[in-house]
C-alpha cells in the first residue's frame, strides 16, 4: 500500500496537482467571491486530469503486475485522492483566515468563509467521492461519466446549501447572521462536515473495492 502511494506520488500524479491547492486556495483572497468554487476546482481540474493520466500511462497494468493485492490498489489510489482533497481544503481554510482578516466589513452575497462554510465544503467533497469512486471502479479506467456525475452532484449540493442559507431564516441566521459569532456552533458544523466526509469516503472505498475485485485487467 505504501509503495503504491509512493508510485502515485512520484510517477502517477503530476507535481502540478500538488501545487494547485495553493493556487486555488489563493482565490480565497478575492473579496466576496463564490468561495465554494475553490474546492470545486479539485473536481473540475485535478480529478479528470489525474485519472486521464493513469489511463494513458497504463497504470492499472503496472500496478497489477506488481506484488500487490487489488484491495491495496484501491486503498492507495483513494488515499492519494483524499490527500489532495485535504490539501485543497486545508489551503482554502488557511487562506480564508486572511480573507476574513483583510476584509472585515464586506457584504457577502454568497457564503462567507467561516468554519461552518468549510463544514459544507467537506460534505461536498464527501458527496463527490461517493459518486465518483464507485462509478470509476466499475472499470478502473473510464472516468468521463464518473467525473461528470460526481461533479454535478457536488455542485448541486453546493447550490442547494447556498439556496437554503439564503432562503431559510434559521439557516440564514447560522451562515449570515448571529450564528457567525457562535464559534462553538461554527466549529461543530465543521467537525460534523469532516465526519460526514470520512463516512462517505469509507463507504465509497468499500463499494469501490467490491467492484474492482470484479474488474478484468485487459
Amino acid at each position: 500500500m505504501y509503495n503504491l502511494v509512493m508510485k502515485d506520488l512520484k510517477l502517477g500524479v503530476n507535481p502540478w496537482f500538488f501545487a494547485l491547492p495553493l493556487l486555488a486556495g489563493a482565490l480565497m483572497l478575492i473579496p466576496a467571491w463564490v468561495y465554494v468554487l475553490v474546492p470545486l476546482y479539485f473536481c473540475f481540474i485535478t480529478v479528470p486530469n489525474m485519472l486521464g493520466g493513469f489511463k494513458s500511462q497504463n497504470d492499472l497494468m503496472f500496478s497489477t503486475l506488481m506484488p500487490t493485492s487489488k484491495r491495496d490498489i484501491v486503498k492507495a489510489r483513494i488515499f492519494v485522492i483524499v490527500l489532495l482533497e485535504v490539501l485543497h481544503l486545508l489551503a482554502g481554510m488557511v487562506f480564508s483566515l486572511f480573507t476574513l482578516h483583510l476584509y472585515p466589513n464586506i457584504d457577502y452575497l454568497f457564503f462567507a468563509p467561516h468554519a461552518g462554510f468549510w463544514g459544507i465544503c467537506w460534505v461536498m467533497l464527501g458527496i463527490f467521492n461517493i459518486i465518483l469512486l464507485p462509478i470509476y471502479y466499475k472499470t478502473a479506467y473510464k472516468y468521463g461519466g464518473a467525473v461528470t456525475f460526481s461533479t454535478i452532484a457536488a455542485a448541486l449540493f453546493a447550490i442547494v446549501a447556498q439556496g437554503a442559507a439564503m432562503g431559510i431564516p434559521w439557516v440564514n441566521d447560522i451562515f449570515y447572521g448571529a450564528g457567525l459569532d457562535r464559534v462553538g456552533l461554527q466549529f461543530s458544523i465543521l467537525a460534523v462536515g469532516i465526519l460526514i466526509f470520512v463516512g462517505l469516503t469509507l463507504i465509497a472505498y468499500r463499494i469501490s473495492v467490491r467492484r474492482f475485485l470484479n474488474v478484468e485487467i485487459i
Binding site: Q57, N58, D59, M61, F62
Partner: peptide
Amino acid sequence: IDFYTRSRIKTV
C-alpha cells in the same frame, strides 16, 4: 504493453 513510457528507466 507499455506503461509510463515517458519516464526514464531510472525512475521506473
